[in-house]
Structure formats: structure tokens, C-alpha cells
Amino acid sequence: MAGNATDYIKHHLTFWKSSHEGFWSFHIDTFSVSLILGFIFVGVFAMVARNAKLENPGRLQLFVESIIEMVNTQVKEIFHAESKVLAPLALTIFCWVFLMNFMDLLPVDLIPMAAQWIGYTFFGADPHHVYFRVVPSADVNATFAMSISVMFCIIGFSIKAKGLGGWGKELLTAPFHAHSPVLVAILAPVNFAFQMVELVAKPISLSLRLFGNMYAGELIFILIALLPWGAQWILGAPWAIFHILVITLQAFVFMMLTIVYMSLAVEKH
């Protein structure tokens, strides 16, 4: 292993890309895994919602209800305006991010090796050129897709709460307030710059936090996989157990910050 450790790590950190070049190249692994996980999430939840019983609910229903209750409590505590979108958005973020993070707990070689075997056996591909990264949230594209969507939601919530004019005015008059028109005019560009930084910092921090945690976690699992097989559990087990906390926490943090950002967006300064 030691000789080709670099190759091993590199192989694990390469995406399965479509044949397009540049921006239009496409991470098939990230997209398909997250899509399947998304379908699992909405499938299970929709099934439970469809068969939900008022009395005598089953275990799965109780599990789903406890998640809904948790999300609902957080939304109600933090977000004081009325919104039909925010709670489902928060629920989707929590569950989807959790499931994507959960892929980190699968053995690092399980899916890539299965992909290699399938590619080699059925499609005659060179196993060294079959790549599969199984943790979608360790792909910046996945995390930024969510956080940029959240940013658009922030803008949308702001406009809906304050009107287009109100939001535009806030962009120019906060955080520095002034009374004389001259000072207002001078402060407007400064305020605007601050607001833009604030607006852009939110999705960047959201997505990079999640990406960084998951990428680091994945990398450590890969490094542990380089140990002799008899010694792997010594580090692998504690890290995996700790990672159960990390993946849940990251999903929770993403959800909570989204709710907080939305409540800030509808608040009047």
C-alpha cells in the first residue's frame, strides 16, 4: 500500500465525471448519489405522510414525527413570521444533508470498488479509471448548490417581508445610519459593500463549513484505510463513532443557520 498511497488517495478523491469539458463537466457520482438519497428521503417521508395514522402510529411514523417536531420547534422558536416554505426547506436540508453525510460512514472502499467491479465486468472499463466519490456533501458543488439556493431564499424572504424598495433601501442605509442627506449619500456605497459581504458570506460559510467537515472526515477515513488491515479498527472505530456526531451536527447546523438567516432576512433593521 505504501508505495501507491498517493495514487490510492488521489483515486479516492477524483470524481466520476461526464465527458464534457470545463464548466459543463458533470459529477455523475455526486449527482446520482444525492438524487437517490433525496428520493429515499422524500419517498419515506411521503409514504409516512400518506399512511399517517392519527391514533396508534407505527415506529417509522413516530420517528418521522419526531424529526418533524424537532424542525418545527426550531422554526417556531427562531422564525417569528409566517412562512409556508421555511419549515419544509429546513426539514429537507436537515434530512438530505444528513443522508449525504451519512455516506461517509460507509466503508471508504465499498462503493468505489463495487463501481470498479461493475465498470470492469459489464462495461469493460479500466478499473483504474473508474472513479466514484460517494459522499456528495464532500463536493463543493453539492454544498454550494444548497447554500446558494438558501441565499436566493434570503433575498426572496427579504423582498417579500420589506418589499423591493424596502430591501433596496436597507441595502444602502444599514448598518451605518445617518440623518443628513449628504452623509447618507456618502455612507450608501459603504453600506452596500457591507451588505454584499454579509449576503455573500452567508452561503460561503454555510457550504464551506459542511464541505470542510465532510471532506476532512472522508480524507481521514481514506488515511485510516491505508493502515494495515488489522490495525484499522483502532482508529477507524473511534473516528466513525465520532463522525456519527459530526454528520448529525453538520446537518443540524446547516438547518439552524438557514432558519436564523431567514429570520434575519424578514426582520426590520
Binding site: G22, H27, V48, A49, K84, V85, T92, N141, A145
Partner: peptide
């Protein structure tokens, strides 16, 4: 960054829409 971002965003939007429509209100 590449087109995966767009794909993920679309998936995300669909998931949120579905949750908003068929999961959250009935439950």
C-alpha cells in the same frame, strides 16, 4: 465548480417543493 452545482440546485429545489407539497402539510 461545474454544472453539478446546477444539477444539485435543481434537485434541491424539487426536494423542497415536494416536501412543501406532500410531506410537511399532511404530517
Amino acid at each position: 465548480f461545474n454544472a453539478t452545482l446546477l444539477g444539485q440546485a435543481i434537485t434541491f429545489a424539487i426536494l423542497v417543493w415536494f416536501t412543501m407539497k406532500f410531506v410537511w402539510p399532511p404530517l
